[in-house]
Design a protein around this nucleic acid. Sequence first.
DNA 1: GTCTATAAGCAGATAGAC
DNA 2: GTCTATCTGCTTATAGAC
Lengths: 211, 211
Amino acid sequence: MDNQHQPEITPGNTDSTEQRIFDAAHELFVLKGLDGAKMQEIADKAGINKALLHYYYRSKEKLYEMVAKAVIGRAVPVIQNLLESDDPLEEKISRFIDFYIDMVSRNPFIPLFVINELNKHPDRFFETILPKELPRPHAFFRQVEAEVAKGNLRPIKPQHLLVNVVSLCIFPFVAKPMIRIVLGLDQQEIKAFLAERKEAVKAFVFQAIRT
Amino acid sequence: MDNQHQPEITPGNTDSTEQRIFDAAHELFVLKGLDGAKMQEIADKAGINKALLHYYYRSKEKLYEMVAKAVIGRAVPVIQNLLESDDPLEEKISRFIDFYIDMVSRNPFIPLFVINELNKHPDRFFETILPKELPRPHAFFRQVEAEVAKGNLRPIKPQHLLVNVVSLCIFPFVAKPMIRIVLGLDQQEIKAFLAERKEAVKAFVFQAIRT
DNA sequence: GTCTATAAGCAGATAGAC
DNA sequence: GTCTATCTGCTTATAGAC
């Protein structure tokens, strides 16, 4: 049994039974959560029998933990790279927005999965899911503070800037159905609206911080 | 059986068995979702027997629907009032931010509950949960467009402005545990950080939109 | 490794006494 | 209205043949 799963955020590479089980579990756990996803359903989607789930992964819990660990562990190094690059600040923020919105457009349920996991099972998260390496935003923070000191940026706490940018990128995709209803958009229109977000967020953020 | 539940967002007024059941269900469904919350658990928290749940509310589904309807229905008129008031735009936005952050500070799991409900059970939502009256943001949109036309505001699609403000208010509270980890804050520090959000959001938004 | 069959436990729902 | 006891079905998990 292979403990080193490194699936794509959009899963599915090799074709071994173990991998097919993992991919099916990935899709269903992300979509429905631990309680909502059923072992039978996972087996069906993987095209194998229920018993094999227990053969490869001892229990539902273990399978879930592997999926959660993969989902969360995979995003960390990318974010880290973005935050620690040597790019000028505005470029860095711009690339950060592009990356986040691309990511969440393709995987709209991943942020919700992570947030639910952290809110509903914090103990499991800290004991078994939490990756050893976390994004360290200190370099980014210092860069912001330096630009503020130089007068290139309006005064802002770098922590709030980071949280603002992430909020503007992720929340609209997580709350997509709610936004669709409140704005009174049909499926096509909400798609078009979300496609405008990259430019809308950049314009909003840069206008907020530029002197 | 009373079909007109109107509980506080923070539940718990009268002391009838029916109300105690509803309050217990409210707390547990919001916290754990439909699958995560168990009828036994609800009965225990209400201090009564499992059988009584079915006496007052025919099934788990029905009970859940009542809770979901109450949670969602309650927020609508308040938001509507905020959006349709006659206040000048900046004041309106300021009050909107105050309201949202106050609300989500006191009830951090409500937005997550609503988002999960909409994403995971859209059919049930549209058939039985969706309130007849929805917030109608058109007045707000026209007001923004008028200010932009007068040159008092930088050009911005009012829909994006609304989504931006809501994102900045809600997301940090929904993602609180994640933010805590990434920023490396302890319980006290994250509390202090979130307490700064009202001013931080206002400053950010107004700097972004003022000419 | 993969299957069928089945065990074991739990959760939602009902019957019926008080 | 409220309880205890019980039923029914579903879900996880295991045993054992191939």
